[in-house]
């Protein structure tokens, strides 16, 4: 189980006021399935994934996640823009102790295309960077994969990512603002609404809940 125990998070804004993202909430999510995080723009989807990855600490409470969590992929910020794909892959390979040649081969096999390995990442479009980053992380073995804002990814690539995670018996948590993607891919949904986190095992009920008018209760 992935557990959020009494987790709260807020950000300091200019002028001393704080923007509350999550008021104290406790939820549970199953393992070895595809979990969709559904929320509007600025709702806190990325923060939720970064908290799961351990990059951001909650203000209170604690998060129990699988031990070997992948970095949050598809945000487009993981790769060094000034380095080439090969150099970025080398860095990731060194961090995770894998063979860089094998990593690059796996990436090419995963994307089913030849990558221009010497081209700096900054020359790629943002969507392309997201794709590369997602591929690079997905070909590495983790217990839990985190994909942020999957609406920017190509549908075929997204399917391949979920397929790979499924083959590895890994949990996948993806965030999106598009209910259709949740309907298509998710087996469990967490809706971010207001400052609350609402878990749903019934996908259609989650989408209905997300689409209904909400009372503005955000600070």
């Amino acid at each position: 189980m992935i557990q959020f125990l009494d987790v709260a998070k807020s950000y300091a804004k200019g002028g001393g006021a704080a923007k509350v993202l999550f008021s104290p909430t406790s939820i549970e999510m199953p393992l070895d399935c595809r979990i969709g995080v559904l929320g509007g723009r600025g709702a806190g989807k990325t923060t939720l994934l970064q908290m799961l990855a351990g990059n951001i600490a909650p203000d209170r409470g604690c998060i129990l996640a699988p031990k070997d969590v992948a970095p949050v992929a598809s945000s487009g910020r993981l790769l060094y823009p000034q380095l080439s794909i090969a150099d970025n892959a080398q860095f990731i390979a060194r961090i995770y102790g894998v063979d860089v040649e094998r990593l690059l081969m796996a990436m090419e096999a995963f994307q089913a295309s030849d990558l221009n390995l010497r081209q700096p990442v900054r020359l790629h479009s943002m969507d392309n960077r997201r794709g590369l980053e997602t591929t690079m992380i997905t070909v590495l073995p983790f217990d839990c994969y985190l994909y942020d804002d999957v609406g920017h990814l190509e549908p075929y690539l997204l399917e391949q990512c979920f397929e790979a995670a499924y083959q590895r018996h890994a949990t996948t948590v993806f965030s999106t603002a598009d209910p259709k993607l949740v309907q298509r891919f998710a087996e469990f949904v967490v809706v971010i609404k207001g400052t609350g986190l609402y878990p749903f095992a019934d996908i259609e009920a989650a989408v209905d809940f997300f689409k209904t008018e909400m009372t503005p209760d955000r600070n």
Binding site: Y96, V98, L103, E163, A164, Y166, Q167, H169
Partner: peptide
Amino acid sequence: PQSRDATPKSAWVTRP
């Protein structure tokens, strides 16, 4: 998703 045995595991990257 396909069956869990569908993808050849030899193509995967392994971590020590």
